[in-house]
Simulated scan of single mutants.
Amino acid sequence: MEALLVPVLILVLVGVVVVLAARALGRRRPRSPQEEPAQPARSSAELARAAAAKLDQEQHRRLYALIAQGQAMAAIKLYLEATGEGLRASRDAVGALAAHPQPYRPKPAPEQPAHDDDDDTPQRFPYRYRAIASKGEVTREVSSNMLNDEIYGRIRTLARSGDTEAAAAALTRHSDISLKQAQEFIALLED
């Protein structure tokens, strides 16, 4: 009996090691979807809106063309490449877009500050701009680092439309000349 005691103890020890190893591996294996904690589920329509917002117009058009042709894998690949999201997220997004078609909505452009002629502090440029106006033998020149083609174009447009006071005021604001000198200059631009 003593001869059998050592092999039985070895078998029991091996069995315990196998059971412990199985438990340790069971803890490391990925959870099945039933065991995962519930994440807040987004509705399919919300997911479709969010997914469509991530695409530019050409990507949006191509994606819906692939969906219409029944090429789901190509559509998923296109979405994945366009957004950089994972495969599962891309699959879900394309499925939502197919179930809830979304029109293309351009992203709103960031607001640009409006160019206001009544700006109190004109921008100074690193160069001096020369504006020259002449009529017959009379020539006037204005040189300023607060003028450029765009500003001078607006001043000329004001002068030619008959609003000489606004044109002279704008020229005075964007240069170092007096109002009288600006009015003389603007008078040469009226034609």
Rank of each mutant, 00 (worst) to 15 (best):
P40G: 07
L9V: 08
S44C: 10
V8K: 08
Y129N: 01
R61Y: 02
L4W: 08
R91I: 04
R91A: 14
L171N: 04
D120R: 11
R140L: 14
Q59T: 06
A114M: 05
Y129F: 11
V17C: 08
H100M: 02
T121S: 15
R62C: 01
L5E: 15
G153D: 10
V94E: 03
A41E: 15
Q123F: 09
A24Q: 12
R91Q: 15
S134N: 13
R28L: 14
A68G: 09
L13E: 12
L147N: 05
L25M: 09
A3L: 12
S175R: 01
A3E: 10
R128P: 05
V16T: 13
E184T: 10
G153I: 07
I186L: 06
Y64N: 02
T139V: 09
H100T: 04
Q39S: 14
I186K: 02
A182E: 02
T121C: 10
A22V: 12
R130M: 12
E2G: 04
Q57K: 06
E58Q: 11
P40H: 08
L147W: 05
E2C: 00
T139I: 11
R154S: 12
E46I: 03
E46A: 05
R91G: 15
L171T: 04
F185N: 03
V19I: 13
G70P: 02
S175D: 01
A182Y: 02
D163R: 12
L188P: 03
S161D: 12
A159I: 09
K107H: 15
Q183N: 09
V6K: 00
E35M: 07
L9D: 03
Y129C: 01
A187D: 09
I67Q: 03
E85L: 15
R27C: 00
G162E: 10
K77S: 15
L25F: 13
F185E: 07
E81L: 12
R128S: 06
A98S: 11
Q181S: 15
A182V: 01
D56P: 06
L171Q: 02
P126Q: 01
R29H: 06
E137C: 03
A96F: 02
A41Y: 15
L171D: 04
L179M: 13
S178N: 06
G162S: 10
S43M: 03
Q123K: 15
G15Y: 03
A98C: 02
V138L: 12
A51H: 00
G26Y: 01
D191V: 09
R28H: 07
Q181F: 14
S44K: 08
I151S: 04
L189T: 04
Q59Y: 00
L25K: 07
L9W: 06
A168S: 06
A133W: 03
E85Y: 12
R62S: 08
D176R: 10
H100W: 07
D149S: 11
H100Q: 04
F185M: 00
A93Y: 02
L4H: 08
G136R: 12
V14S: 06
A170T: 11
